[in-house]
Amino acid sequence: MAYHAKKCGIRFQPPAIILIYNEQAKEKDRQRIMPVRNFSKFSDCIGAAEQLKNNPRHKQFLEGVSLQQLVKLYTVLKGHLQGQSLVESLQKIQQETVFDPDENLNKLDDKELKKRKNLMDKLFEKNCKKKDDPEFVYDIEVEFLQDTQLESCGWDDGSDNEF
């Protein structure tokens, strides 16, 4: 990855997503300001986050920033536009808007697990190809080569490699 994302935040006025990153082999951190346009208190945060993440101009800079984090930033902005304080917005996010990807869902009871699944359902529904869709294909095969040339997923390092 050529750019190493260090911090990513939101500015309310004028609205922008701000990224602090580091260019490979360069010492100095740089700041990238990505203006937020056409976003209102009614907007869809997941949609906006995805659009930004796939924006050809910003995409390579945002590789190291998760979609969830961007969704969260847009949600804070949306809260602000609705007149919520930052603390309120963050609380609300904690409760319902994004889940903590590191949380161990195996430990939750049915009700809490259902809540997390509901959050996941938004993206699922969005990407879901329905059976009655004329473009629906039952058997879709795509080959993805796994060779050692590929960059690591980053999840393999660490102490529990003893397998």
């Binding site: 699922f124 990407n127 190809k129 795509v142 960059e151 690591s152 999840w155």
Partner: peptide, 21 residues
């Protein structure tokens, strides 16, 4: 990206999506 878990154990590995199939 490379996911080593399956490779290390010599197991078949599939990338899938229940959403888009």
């Amino acid at each position: 990206k490379n996911f080593n878990f399956a490779k290390k154990l010599n197991l078949p590995f599939y990338f899938v999506s229940a959403a888009d199939g």
